[in-house]
Each structure stands twice: as structure tokens, then as C-alpha cells.
Amino acid sequence: MSDLLLRQRAHARPAEAPAEPAVLVPPRAAHAVRRAGRLAVAVGLRSVAVVAFLLLWEVAPRIGLVDPVFLPPLSEVLATTRDLAASGQLGEHVRASLVRAGSGFGIAVVAAIPLGLLIGWYRTVSTVLSPILEAFRNTAALALLPVFVLVLGIGETSKIALVAFASFFPILLNTISGVRTVDPLLVRSARSLGLSPLRLFQKVILPSAVPTIFTGLRMAGAASVLVLVAAEMIGAQAGLGYLINAAQLNFQIPEMYAGILTISVIGIVVNYVLLAAERRFSRWRA
């Protein structure tokens, strides 16, 4: 899983975007898509694929390429989203999910960064902790969901713990590698100034590891949303995962897509915020 997340580029669509039935586009639709594409080029090449996709979403159900019952046109989903938002329901679910994801993510940050710094810097700590961390790292977070529920109950705690667990490793591993890949010459040069180990850490190791740590934070951000939605689908009374699952069970298909769309948007926003923070902290990079 983390491999997949690693490859996921900064602006790539989150993996949980609605699954598109693979269909060949007939000439008429292709023409529409091309026209839309040309329009988008003017706006910016970056939005071409997104716009094309959204357009396909709108057009495909309308022209009968897919069953509109199972995939309602985008406009219908957007209208439902608006209604859900207006009634305050959507806000409720978003808030529930964000609180869980944020708490879990926060716990992971607070635990993983200091631990990663220690493991990266002290060989002994690394030797002692690596085997156990390796074992946990290779245990898929969702596989532990039943354990978390069993031990921590069905409430908030188990969900937050699961998010914390899933976010922990991307942050930890990237922090470790950030510390380990510090240019030894910089360390030597700082040592030659007689900097104490603590100062050396503060002035050289940490700033040098920041960009790598941020990569970990972004991966963890994506991971936290991912496992949270899954956890909410299994046992929750609120949250976007719950909304999606409940809507599907009640055959409220537009509501289901509204939930999915909201998660995509949240994923993009989270990634964007972390990316902005990363830029803010690594303005010095070429």
C-alpha cells in the first residue's frame, strides 16, 4: 500500500475516485471530449485530464453508455451534494471524519517524527527497534481493524488509533531516511565549528531532513483518509465512510457519489495544504 502511495504524484487523483467502467468512446462522445479538451488547454494543460474525466462522467450516463441508476451524471451528483450540504448532513459527516483523521494523523506526527529522528541518528536505537517496526510495517493497517475494535471498542478510539497506525509508518520511515541521507560533509563542516550534538541536530540534521519528512507527511495524509473511510464503513454512526456505505445500502446512489466526491476533494485539499507547507519550509531548494 505504501508503495502505491509513494508513486502517487503530488497532483494525482486520489485512488478512491469513483471507479469508471472501462468503455470505448464512440466518435460522437470523442468529439465532445476533444472540444472540451481544446477548451481546457486555454485554461491550462494541468486541468485537461480532470475536465475530460468530469465531462465523461456527465455525458456517459446521459447517452446511455452506463446505466444512470448506477452512475448518475455529475450534475445530479453535484445537486445532491449541494442538498446534503444545505441540510447540514454533509458538514456533520465531514466534521466527524476530519476530527478522526486529524487526531490520528496528529498522534502519528507527534510519535513518528521524534522516534524517526532517534532511529536515524542512533545506530543502537535502530538496531533494537528495526525488527519490530519492520514486522508492524508489513502488517496492513486494515488487517488490524478487528483487533483495534476488539481492544478499543467500536467508538472513536479504535478509528483514531487505526488512522494513527496507518499514518505512523510513512512518517517514521521518511524521517529515518531524511536523517540518514544528510550530507556527511555538512555534518563535518558543522562539527568543525565546534557545534554541540544538540545544536548540530537543530541546525543541520533537522533542516536537512525536512523535505523528506514532508514527503512522509503527504503519504501519511493520504493513508489516513484511506483507512479512515474503510473503518467508517464497518462501524460508525457518522463520517464520510459511513455516509457512502449507508447510502449504498439504502440505494441512495447520488448520495453515495456525493460522499465519494467529497472524500476526493478532501484528499486533494489535504495534499495541497501539505504541499504548500512543504514549499514554505523548503523554499531554498532549486
Partner: peptide, 10 residues
């Protein structure tokens, strides 16, 4: 040092 050894973030 031969390779400058400047902190790139400063």
C-alpha cells in the same frame, strides 16, 4: 572544504 559545504537551506 573543497566542496563548499554550505547549508543549502540558508
Amino acid at each position: 572544504f573543497q566542496q563548499y559545504a554550505l547549508l543549502p537551506w540558508r
